[in-house]
């Protein structure tokens, strides 16, 4: 209980004394000494952090919230989100949920926009490599925990997997009603008329529901829920998934869940049924006709091509095609 037991306190002390020692010396020396001392300390402390960064009290608090979230599918459970060493809005909710779930034996995959090597996915993966020392992978089927932003992998998930979504605005009614006090009542009373009105207005104005991502869903016939900004193309994968789906919103301090084998219905109307959309073209790299595509602008003249957004899915298909081609060549 005493401050002396705390290693961080000792480093604080040494920081102070470095600075005062430095003051006594010549200007240039001071500068270098002091800056070295400061930088070293930051590096050293990385090892001093708890497994998966968060302290045990915080993880217990998050774990309790996760269990309540799983017990009440689609309901946004408040939790005392902590400040993380990455900015709010950059996946702090997902990171906290992942940190609370990870065990040393896990294999983690992190994707952003479907890709394993987008900068923020790289940054989050490195964070867990450093703080939890877990194995990481890009192969969807090898992962036990997948943290994602904006996509669900093309390869079907399994019972042995947890997928953690990063969520910017967990409240599906937020853009219709900015007040938390109001939206909380709407959920309590199961009063979702506002959402239906909005979707219907879209149809009357544009002939379409103009929501193309973060398309609201009804979870187990009770809570209207935001699936995070995944394209509506991915919505069908939410329903009846064998994997546990957890959603973390750090800045907004909410965790929610879709348990395995849970009914998830994208909101629609009888005369305007939900349409996940499809692509007129196949992936220009692997030829897949059933995956979500990124549009790539290839030249100044507006040339473009469409390729899979799920980089693992696409590269593995191409590798298989190459292998097949090589073996065919060998046989000839």
């Amino acid at each position: 209980m005493s401050a002396v037991d705390d290693p961080t306190d000792l480093t604080l002390g040494s920081e102070g004394s470095d600075a005062s020692v430095a003051e006594a010396k010549g200007d240039e020396q001071i500068a270098d000494l002091s800056s070295d001392a400061g930088d070293d300390r930051i590096d050293e402390t990385i090892d001093g952090y708890n497994f998966a960064y968060l302290d045990e009290n915080t993880k217990r608090m998050i774990r309790r919230a996760i269990l309540k979230a799983v017990a009440i599918p689609g309901y946004q459970t408040p939790f005392a989100s902590r400040e993380m060493p990455m900015p709010y809005g950059w996946g702090t909710g997902g990171v906290q949920v992942t940190a609370a779930c990870l065990t040393p034996g896990d294999t983690l995959k992190v994707i952003d926009q479907g890709a394993d090597d987008t900068t923020n996915a790289v940054s989050i993966r490195q964070f867990f490599e450093k703080t939890a020392r877990v194995d990481t992978t890009t192969r969807t089927e090898d992962a036990t925990v997948i943290q994602t932003r904006h996509r669900i992998p093309e390869k079907a998930l399994t019972e042995d997997q947890i997928i953690v979504y990063q969520v910017p605005i967990p409240e599906p009614l937020r853009y219709l009603e900015p007040r938390e006090t109001e939206t909380r009542k709407m959920h309590a009373l199961e009063e979702y008329g506002l959402m239906h009105v909005k979707l219907y207005e879209d149809i009357s104005r544009h002939g379409h529901i103009a929501t193309t991502y973060a398309y609201p869903v009804m979870v187990e016939d009770r809570y209207v829920t935001d699936p995070s900004p995944i394209p509506k193309f991915d919505n069908p994968k939410l329903s009846n998934s064998p994997a546990l789906q957890l959603f973390g919103a750090g800045r907004e301090q909410r965790i929610y869940a879709i348990p395995p084998y849970t009914k998830v219905k994208s909101l629609d109307f009888e005369d305007y049924p939900f349409d996940p959309g499809q692509w007129p073209q196949a992936c220009a790299l692997c030829g897949a006709e059933d995956s979500y595509l990124d549009e790539i602008i290839t030249d100044d003249a507006g040339g473009r091509m469409f390729v899979c957004s799920d980089t693992d899915f696409c590269s593995r298909r191409r590798a298989e095609q190459d292998a097949a081609a090589t073996s065919e060549e060998g046989e000839q």
């Binding site: 708890n50 497994f51 998966a52 045990e56 799983v70 017990a71 779930c101 065990t103 546990l244």
Partner: peptide
């Protein structure tokens, strides 16, 4: 080992509640 023991135990309980 409070940190890793709790992590493993939580995953077991999470699995129980999710299934």
């Amino acid at each position: 080992k409070p940190s890793v023991d709790a992590a493993a135990s939580f995953r077991t309980i999470l699995n129980a509640v999710a299934r």
